[in-house]
Design a binder for these strands. Structure first.
Length: 415
RNA sequence: GCUCCCAUCGUCUAGAGGCCCAGGACACAGCCCUCUCAAGGCUGGUACGAGGGUUCGAAUCCCUCUGGGAGCGCCA
């Protein structure tokens, strides 16, 4: 569907995964597939099968009852005349002797007995080609050298190799990488929240954060955990990939993302923070302020979504104080401290973090108290809660006017 | 059921016969740092699925079992 195609293309674009050509659409290559089907038919490498759905079901039921692997028994292989009133499918004629060896890059040689391979349908009764056949024609036409895919495809590989050989070419190199399981070790499904890569973008992940986490699943480079895109592309080697499946771990995924957020430039974070804030109803084009906030918050959030959530007070009024924080910090006892701080701050000439820090420190010293005694009430006053970046940095970003205004309101609240 | 694949801490992994009474990371616990929260530092507990071999010596090689996964469509 167009939506599915869009999700793939957009997802890769967001991740920065580039491609040299294409994308190609199989729906636009129908003529070519039919051409190869005709060729196979002509060369006796494929044949028409007139078996009905019911007949096939019955055959499989019998095999299952006999504890055999359900598979097509080749009954139409030697049919000479068409069955009247039936539009046939086309089946590929698999060899019935010998074996096929898939020399897999990550698994090593895997042997399949030809007897295990039945004659798969390559064209439906309406003439349209099927997946396993189309990819073979594509790999052949496009001179694909490496096929890297999930190991759920291992069992398809011997048939594809047989079709490639029927085409007269040697198969490409296959590398079957392990699957990714859900956090509970079972197959990944929507149940686990895995919908599309774009979901991770919306959840506030950095492309390099997701890529790093995913890259370390089934692959490693010594004890290194954090890789830049450049390092990953340079250091990655398909031969180092593990065979076993791995389970998704949300905690580590978040940690990996945070590590990348800490390493990213504030300016870049700002461009991702902006849409996250927009989702919270905050519209701003002040890139300088966004970058300042990102810088102050970049090691305090595991995702950009979390960062946005923690940063709303920088962009809009504090509508209500956190109840517990206010009860503890905005009291009759702290009111004089806030007042003193407010007056000293108002007199400041230069509204920058070092000056702000000195000032608050001085107020605390005069009161014979530690910095925490005064910083925390100010924090609640300006942010509404008990958590924020360092108080001097927070006030600098907020600016003089907003800070004083919020302090006044907090002092009033102290009653 | 049949065929194929896989197997080191809860999770991601290092380990390609002695360097391993198994190392790193996430998570967890404690401590330090500290204006909050983080980040950072230090410390701690937890793993080679089982049983047989081979070898002077096995997490590493072989076999069996057990456990998990995938495939067996006129789906992709």
């Amino acid at each position: 569907t167009p939506e599915a195609v869009h999700a793939i293309v957009e997802g890769m674009k967001w991740l920065g995964l580039d491609h040299d050509e294409g994308p190609f659409y199989q729906t636009q290559r129908m003529g070519r597939y039919k051409e190869v089907i005709e060729q196979f038919l002509r060369e006796g490498k494929a044949y028409h099968c007139y078996c009905s759905k019911e007949e096939l079901d019955e055959m499989r039921a019998g095999q299952t009852a006999r504890k055999e692997k359900p598979r097509y028994d080749g009954r139409c292989r030697h049919r000479t005349a068409p069955a009247p009133g039936v539009t046939p499918v086309v089946r590929f004629r698999n060899p019935d002797e010998g074996s096929v060896v898939v020399d897999d890059v990550v698994h090593g040689p895997i042997t399949f007995d030809s007897g295990e391979l039945d004659d798969l349908i390559i064209a439906r009764s309406d003439g349209t080609p099927t997946y396993n056949f189309c990819v073979v024609v594509d790999d052949y036409d496009m001179q694909v050298t490496h096929v890297i895919r999930g190991d759920d495809h291992i069992n398809n590989t011997p048939r594809q190799i047989n079709m490639l050989r029927a085409l007269g070419v040697e198969p490409p190199l296959y590398a079957h990488v392990p699957m990714i399981l859900g956090p509970d070790g079972t197959k990944l499904s929507k149940r686990h929240g895995a919908v599309s890569v774009l979901q991770y973008r919306d959840d506030g992940f950095l492309p390099e954060g997701l890529l790093n986490y995913l890259g370390r699943l089934g692959w490693s480079y010594g004890d290194q955990e954090i890789f830049t895109l450049e390092e990953m592309t340079r250091l990655f080697d398909i031969h180092d990939v593990n065979k076993g499946a791995s389970a998704l771990n949300v905690d580590k995924m978040l940690w990996t993302n945070q590590q990348h957020m800490m390493r990213a430039t504030p300016e870049r974070l700002a461009t991702y923070l902006q849409p996250q804030l927009a989702m919270l109803g905050i519209q701003t084009d002040d890139l300088a302020k966004l970058a300042a906030v990102a810088k102050a918050q970049q090691e305090r959030a595991k995702t950009l979504k979390e960062m946005a959530g923690n940063s709303t007070f920088f962009f809009r009024e504090v509508v209500a104080y956190d109840e517990k924080a206010a009860k503890k910090n905005l009291t009759a006892e702290t009111a004089p401290l806030l007042k003193a701080a407010r007056d000293r701050l108002a007199a400041l000439e230069s509204w920058v973090a070092p000056r702000l820090h000195e000032t608050i420190q001085a107020v605390a010293a005069e009161a014979g108290a530690g910095l925490g005694k005064i910083a925390q009430p100010i924090r609640v006053a300006v942010s509404g809660g008990s958590v924020s970046p360092p108080i001097d940095v927070t006030l600098e970003i907020l600016g003089r006017e907003t800070t004083l205004q919020r302090l006044d309101r907090a002092i009033a609240h102290c009653g």
